[in-house]
Design a protein around this nucleic acid. Structure first.
Ligand SMILES: [Mn+2]
Ligand SMILES: [Mn+2]
Ligand SMILES: [Zn+2]
Ligand SMILES: [Zn+2]
Lengths: 151, 151
DNA sequence: AACTAAATGCAACAATGTTGCATTTAGTTG
DNA sequence: CAACTAAATGCAACATTGTTGCATTTAGTT
């Protein structure tokens, strides 16, 4: 997995460095979301010291190349549980204009709970983000694309 | 909405204060996830100064009373996109032991995309958390409950 | 109006994230 | 292989976000 990522880096003209390999190996091994400082601590434990700035910049690059994914709506965000469903929250987050809309769907909650139950997990409530484009931004994008194609 | 929340506070023996009312009103009006400092800035704009510590403590209380919800896995966490599905991530997060397991389900993604499409949104990928108890913690909980009931 | 437990604000600190610039290094060239 | 250079790293300094202890203020009661 890390090998292919290295190839992707090289192919896009980026250097394959010790820092980048180390960060990727940690992400690959741990296989769950890690903050930049989490990564620094894990590397420290295996005797590898990396400056936190380097880790931030490496992660930025990995995201640009689609080798990593950054969880949005981040930072311990908080919201009043005004919805009827017991604490379940689902959001549509537009990457164009940054707008956020909430929606709720009982059937979906039911299905998702069923899937996790077969994995031995007892779900109490859900939180989900749908990342994409709102209708306005989608339309704008279509226009831009067709303008571009006509040239 | 804020009225009922006030009643809940009073009913549980907590005081209804200016700070608490202001925080609730913002959450109620904005109706999307806000960080504590987001809330402070919004209140500042309407001429209401609140110390950030007070906001943190108010939000903690609202969460304990189930009047607000804190998004977990918070803080711009990052993870390598190793999964086959195009950038979709679904996690089971145990509130007992804090363990995290990832799962993926095509049918679920399909259904969720369909729902948002009917709302005019064009989804590119998903991120979801199922909050609850892993099988170990669920079993422990059951044992504790039965011990308690026998007394 | 007086009382008191609870809530707030303040200060000081810890943790996380960003930027500019000097130094080092991966990959290339001769 | 040695020299070269653009790219990457590390460092310092700073900005933002989150936590704790303690003195002061206040909501709800008597
Ligand atoms: Mn649900
Ligand atoms: Mn999906
Ligand atoms: Zn949009
Ligand atoms: Zn557990």
């Amino acid at each position: 997995m890390v090998q292919e990522a290295m190839g992707e880096l090289r192919g896009q003209g980026y250097k394959v460095t010790r820092s980048r390999r180390l960060v990727m190996e940690v992400l690959d091994k741990v296989d769950k979301p890690l903050s930049p400082y989490d990564i620094q601590r894990l590397l420290q434990q295996q005797g590898e010291a990396l400056n936190h700035v380097t880790i931030y910049r490496t992660l930025d690059l990995l995201c640009r190349l689609n080798l990593a994914h950054r969880v949005l709506l981040s930072g311990g965000f908080i919201r009043c549980a005004l919805s009827p469903q017991g604490g379940c929250h689902r959001f549509m987050v537009c990457r164009g204009c940054g707008s956020i809309r909430e929606f709720i769907d009982d059937a979906l909650c039911h299905e998702e709970s069923g899937i996790t139950r077969t994995l031995g997990f007892h779900t109490e409530h859900h939180y989900s983000e749908s990342l994409g484009l709102c209708s306005d931004c989608y339309r704008k994008q279509l226009e831009e694309d067709s303008t571009y194609n006509r040239m």
